[in-house]
Amino acid sequence: MTGPLLSIRDLHLTMTSFDGAAHVLNGIDLTVQRGEIWGLVGESGCGKSLTGLSISRLVPTPPATYRKGEIRFEGRDILKLPLREMQDLRGKRIGMIFQDPTTNLNPAYRVGEQLIDVALAAASHDPSVLGCPPGAGRRERRRAARRLAGEMLERVGIPDAGARLDNYPHEFSGGMRQRVLIAMALIGRPDLLIADEPTTALDVSVQAQILKLLKGTVADHDIGVILITHNLGVVAETCSHVAVMYAGNIVESGPVSNVIESPAHPYTRALMAAIPTKASKRGTLKGLGGTVPNLITPPPGCRFAPRCPLAIPACTAALPGAVDLGADHRAACIRLEALEHV
């Protein structure tokens, strides 16, 4: 094993708007190894998706600027790669699945056609994807790509996959379209998969199937996954690690079992207290007052302080650094001792 698959160090992203510069990512640190599924959770607008998009360098610059930091994919700094090389990574080494399966498939092309395109593009980078002998003709490559597309659809659980290749996206249900997108993301055998809310629009039964598929893929191919979601239940059941984000910072991170069983940061605790569980009695759920802060003029010091039940004056003095709690479990809070007694 030579170094991590992905390592993000002190990443700062700023968006310029008419109202001023918004510091949307503020020192993100994240390391993903092969075989790990990282859950990225937090409320809307805390920077989860921007972190995911930054890894595939899909954030338009301008209006965005990376003020500081690096994103290393197998040691290479993605932010400094020439566009040409970045395009070779996207879809081939780094796969992405987006939230809305309806808008991410072209309605005018057959599903098989769209899968074959991706397979052929991936094969230009790594010919072994298609399993053709070197120097195979165009038709032979295309036939192999079609066979592969059928196999992938079957693997994601689409019945009668070979025949469904000739269907158009509108002939698939929402869950099936999402599975098509997953097949598309996996067809180039990526090493890193970024799944941005892949199951948010789906029914629980379909969600369970897709999460199982995702876990199976990680186990079979030893890839790394970043799963962006706002559902802590999904994280608890699927991920090996979790990073909780708040207003452009990772406030707590670590192995799922540690973070979910003994959440350290007040924000993580508040998120967990807001989930209705079997034990919660009617009318006793704890909501979290207030809203995510304005990132153009963020509150001084810890950005969660204005909503934090345990905030003290010192919280507004400086942005707290991550405290190591052992076993890779980190939390960025200066009130951790006080929390122990709550």
Binding site: V204, S205, Q207, A208, L211, N231, L232, G233, V234, V235, A236, E237, T238, I260, E261, S262, P263, A264, P266, Y267, R269, A270, M272, A273, I275, T277, K278, K286, P309, L310, V342
Partner: peptide, 27 residues
């Protein structure tokens, strides 16, 4: 939720992603 009779109910409840909290979560 405790004694579902139909397969459909069992399937739905089984597919429900849940966080099992042991301690903490008291903010």
């Amino acid at each position: 939720f405790d004694t579902p009779k139909s397969d459909y109910a069992r399937m739905l409840i089984g597919a429900m992603p849940e966080v099992k909290v042991r301690r903490g979560a008291t903010a």
